[in-house]
Design a protein around this nucleic acid. Structure first.
Ligand code: ZN
Length: 174
DNA sequence: ATTTTCAAT
């Protein structure tokens, strides 16, 4: 399933960075692909929601088929994901990055997925080793409709939980 | 400090 934008209500449920994010049984992946730095005129930009395949792998298949990946040209990929990649996806994405030196990836996550499990932690370290950057940032401005040009009204503990996730990640990566 | 989360019923 894919679309160009994510509805406000869906965003507010799935990208809410709660510590106990009950019932988020899907992962949304909003991607943007640029030649250099992320710009307003991206080469491609879309929202993925997959039920059978994890969204990250779905992205890799998309990228494989989309005529944008050339060895001679740099490509910057930006993801906004509601859950950070699982250990299997992290492995596959790391392998992809390892074999494509011209591709860089920035992942903006709402929440870390199963961050207390060692194999998931290892996945995040592999991503880092292959140059992927994981940060915590929402996609309100670039992917959500309708937002009528207004900034996101922060929910309770948005900033606290951002720091919580960032601290967890820092401990995992060090 | 803890948690149950790309479900499994
Ligand atoms: Zn996965």
């Amino acid at each position: 399933l894919c679309s160009l934008r994510i509805h406000r209500k869906t965003f507010l449920f799935h990208f809410r960075n709660l510590r106990w994010a009950l019932g988020r049984h899907n992962t949304f992946l909003c991607y943007q692909v640029d030649r250099k730095e992320p710009a307003s005129s991206a080469l491609a930009s879309q929202v993925l929601l997959e039920t059978h395949l994890h969204a990250e792998l779905c992205f890799l298949y998309w990228l494989h088929d989309y005529p944008v990946l050339f060895p001679s040209q740099h490509l910057h990929i930006t993801w906004y994901v509601s859950w950070s990649p699982c250990c299997d996806c992290a492995e596959q994405v790391s392998a992809f990055l390892a074999s494509h030196a011209n591709v860089s990836l920035t992942i903006y996550a709402a929440r870390l997925y199963y961050f207390w499990r060692t194999e998931y932690q290892e996945g995040l370290r592999k991503l880092q080793q292959e140059g992927a950057r994981v940060r915590f940032k929402h996609c309100w401005e670039n992917f959500v409709y309708p937002h009528d040009g207004r900034p996101l009204r922060p929910w309770k503990r948005l900033f606290n939980n951002c720091h919580f996730q960032a601290n967890k990640l820092q401990k995992i990566l060090q």
